[in-house]
């Protein structure tokens, strides 16, 4: 983790110094930013009271609202039927209340609505073979991205030789060079780059 942060900082430092190449890392970075820009936005809506017909039993009403918050309003789509002010949301909320009052269980009510409006009404889709990609996909993508970043940075580190230690022979050679011996020019360049 620390290595990742350090590597990221190194990339940023180089970017600030104007030495950044448009390469694969930047490409992946842009893709990551593009995805984070599509983050969900929650609209806080006032609770719908006008046409609601709350139950007299507070415990039953609490259960109705809790269930309503888990069910999507098919008209406004990003609100639950408990929050939405749409006509149909009120109708469905009152339907939920009536069914709870008639002694139906939460599961029976959910099944009732799914049979009519489809699984779209569920804010939390069931975890099965069809929705596997939906549930696992984001984590798999993130893991893939992190792995790519890690392996790319590691390769770069190896290529640039940062952190490589000098063995005894190289150290002796370097000492000799610093002391003023004059080997051929090519050797000097190689030695400098590896130090």
């Amino acid at each position: 983790m620390r290595r990742c942060v350090q590597a990221l900082l190194a990339v940023l430092r180089r970017y600030a110094a104007g030495r950044f190449r448009v390469d694969a890392t930047l490409g992946w970075l842009l893709i990551a930013i593009a995805f984070s820009a599509v983050a969900p936005s929650w609209a806080a809506a006032p609770a719908a009271e006008q046409r609601a017909q709350p139950l007299h039993d507070p415990e039953l009403e609490r259960r109705a609202l809790a269930l309503g918050h888990r069910l999507r309003c098919v008209v406004c789509q990003n609100q639950s039927i408990a929050e939405s002010n749409a006509e149909l949301a009120h109708d469905l909320m009152n339907q939920v209340r009536a069914m709870l009052q008639a002694g139906k269980s939460e599961q029976e009510i959910v099944d009732f609505l799914v049979a009519r409006y489809g699984e779209f009404v569920l804010f939390e889709p069931p975890f099965d073979a069809r929705t596997l990609l939906l549930w696992v996909g984001p984590f798999a993508l993130a893991a893939l991205g992190l792995f790519g970043l890690w392996s790319g940075l590691r390769r770069r580190q190896q290529q640039s030789g940062v952190g490589a230690t000098l063995d005894e022979a190289a150290k002796a050679q370097a000492d000799a060079l610093l002391a003023g011996d004059s080997p051929s020019k090519t050797e000097t360049r190689v030695a400098k780059e590896s130090s």
């Binding site: 098919v74 006509e87 149909l88 109708d91 009519r116």
Partner: peptide, 12 residues
Amino acid sequence: TGRAAIDYGVYG
């Protein structure tokens, strides 16, 4: 009342 329409999944 719209109650029968719920059974048909009418939403508009």
